[in-house]
Simulated scan of single mutants.
Amino acid sequence: MIKIYAPASIGNINVGFDLLGAAISPKNGKLLGDTVTIKSNNTFNLNNTGKFAFQLPKNIKKNIVWKCWNHFCKIIGKKILISITLEKNMPIGSGLGSSACSIVATLVAINKFCNKPLNSRQLLYLMGVIEGEISGDPHYDNVAPCYYGGLQLIINENNYISQSIPFFKDWIWIVAWPGIKISTSSARSILPLKYDKKICIEHSRLLAGFIHASYTQQSKLALKLMKDIIAEPYRMQLIPNYLKIKKQVLNLGAINFGISGSGPTIFVICNNEIIAKNISKWLSKNYLKNNQGFVHICELDTKGTRIIGE
């Protein structure tokens, strides 16, 4: 039996639309992600469990795990007879890399079961391709950090798909999912097809500066540059009272605030545990829409996808 866990992730991180992503873990030690278990079997079988299994499609061929299995079988040229159990603990359409969790955990588990016929780059490439079937375009800002852990810069140039970059260890990350869904494809379709040249230049300046600040460990500079001029101006209309919530959280002492991936999850950065707890309490009372929603105080997950239960 093989059991693989894949962590949640924050895509974009304001300044790096489709180019930056960070894996996260709650500071209290809880797992925030999906788990996939594989056993030998005489036929292919898929079981769905977990808190958010009810959100998965009834048609097995529309299940992302089946798609991963099917792609993998085609690549190696034979059908793999296994029983897969997906423990779906990440809400779909949350903006926390839910699809990435399932894709990465499944492909890593199948590859290990088959004695690793694919190397890490081949696996990551396939992860991006399958992710693209859901969102409309292959992208790696969730699958790369989910797979490798830490903060990842997406290169996507020949053999270089992503690279790990330094992060600030004193930053405390808060994620708040209100309990409602925004599909990635819908959140992408709301964006302009073309951007003004000034916006493109400004985005390049912000991202380049952030990467420089990360490598030189200039926290204050990095925070000043963490602005979303590509997605936030358009996606904030999908999140009720977004600007009011942002203003209040910053007033409570947050040092940065943004939309996680496509939303509706928001992320907050603090550098003080007391402030982080106060903001977490405020978000729990004022941002969650139902009892499925959650708020977690997190740190960056440096392990990425891993075997558990051994």
Rank of each mutant, 00 (worst) to 15 (best):
W282N: 08
A222I: 08
L153A: 06
I275P: 09
G128N: 00
G263C: 10
V175A: 09
Y147P: 00
K79Y: 14
V104H: 07
M236E: 15
C146I: 03
A23H: 02
D170E: 14
S284V: 11
G95V: 07
L238M: 13
A176D: 06
Y234I: 12
F210E: 07
Y147K: 02
L56K: 04
S280N: 12
S262C: 08
K78L: 05
C68T: 11
K30G: 06
I13D: 02
F52H: 10
V65F: 03
E202Y: 12
I307K: 14
N142F: 13
K224H: 15
V129A: 11
E131I: 10
P91L: 11
I180K: 12
S99C: 07
G261Y: 04
V268I: 15
V129S: 07
H139E: 12
L86I: 00
G253Y: 07
N271W: 02
F168D: 03
K74P: 04
I211V: 14
I275M: 09
Q237C: 07
D137K: 14
P7D: 10
K62S: 12
A276P: 00
N63F: 00
C270A: 12
V175F: 01
I130S: 04
I255G: 02
V36H: 05
N251K: 12
M226K: 00
L31P: 03
V175R: 01
S94D: 03
R205G: 07
